[in-house]
Design a binder for these strands. Structure first.
Lengths: 172, 172
DNA sequence: ATTAACTTTCAATTTTTATTGAAAGTTTGA
DNA sequence: TCAAACTTTCAATAAAAATTGAAAGTTAAT
């Protein structure tokens, strides 16, 4: 396979993966393009390579910068901005995890905390209320577990990630 | 807070969480409704409680059954079908993990495997090709790590999940 | 202060995805 | 075998999300 074809396949595959996980296809594709590009790219470069509009490029690179996985690069004597992706995959994964935890896990934990305060009422039997409380409690436990696991991974350095965690996963 | 209000908030929150992770809002809401309902529900029950059409209920309930997290329940002497959610949250999480790994992780691993076979060509410098191969290699390593981690979690029973994994996450 | 080179915004549009509802299909009991 | 009580399908429709492109905004050099 030729390099260009391989790059295209990666961009396409990464885009598909992203959209399955709630990241817009284009955002994932911009990320993939920056990952496979040796140097930083300008807005025009991205527009041309992915065949998308200027506004779209701007929107998506800014979202990627919000996530901390893409950086703006300024070159002396150049007015336009160049963009490059964090190339360390563990760091990238950590940053994504951090951001998604903040955006998605924390809100549901808040909701779970609120609704676990459900009080006995005349319209529901005590059994119904108890069943609900128990159900929510187990979801809450699980979500808190996931939250703590995410924290640990976020704090962990790459060595820990590769050695300690790897050993756990393959104890043989 | 009253039980009904708490249930609604859970259904809404679960729906939002789902859509952030690439699951349709309605599918997540049907799942949430079944989770908070003490008994099994009929198609009509779901239609009424979520205010959605019969076709939509049918579609989403079948998708949830594909995932293995909702079961059909037949009652003697009743022609219609009732549905109930797996109430064990660890088991639910495991089943979701398993299904998503199959649907989303495996395809990207296949793509990565293919494109790592990139060959030197006249249109690209050896350095470019090498940089690409290295990049893809690190993504591949990471994806394979995630794949193995998922396998382990899938095989693990609840005890392991709660004790061993918990200890690792909070080594103090 | 002006202008050229850029970035950002946003209302309009397109594309994608989800939903409906009615018709077709299936199953079960009489 | 019939018909009632269901489930399933799918073409049409609606809703949501992504995208465009042109105009407005910003910045930096002269």
């Amino acid at each position: 396979m030729q390099l260009d074809e391989a790059k295209s396949k990666f961009i396409e595959g990464w885009g598909t993966l992203g959209s399955a996980w709630g990241v817009s296809r284009t955002m994932a594709q911009v990320h993939a393009l920056l990952l496979v590009s040796p140097g930083a790219l300008s807005t025009e470069d991205i527009m041309e390579q992915l065949q998308i509009s200027r506004g779209n490029v701007n929107l998506n690179v800014r979202a990627l910068m919000d996530w901390g996985i893409v950086r703006k690069e300024l070159r002396p004597g150049e007015r336009r901005e160049f963009f490059s992706a964090e190339k360390d995959i563990h760091r990238t994964a950590t940053l994504i995890l951090k951001e998604r935890r903040k955006r998605e896990l924390e809100p549901i934990l808040r909701v779970l905390g609120e609704i676990s305060q459900v009080e006995p009422s005349p319209t529901a039997t005590p059994e119904e209320t108890a069943a609900f409380t128990q159900m929510i409690g187990s979801v809450q436990n699980f979500a808190e577990f996931a939250n703590r696991a995410a924290s640990t991974l976020i704090k962990a350095d790459e060595n820990w990630f590769l050695s300690t965690f790897m050993k756990l996963m393959r104890p043989g």
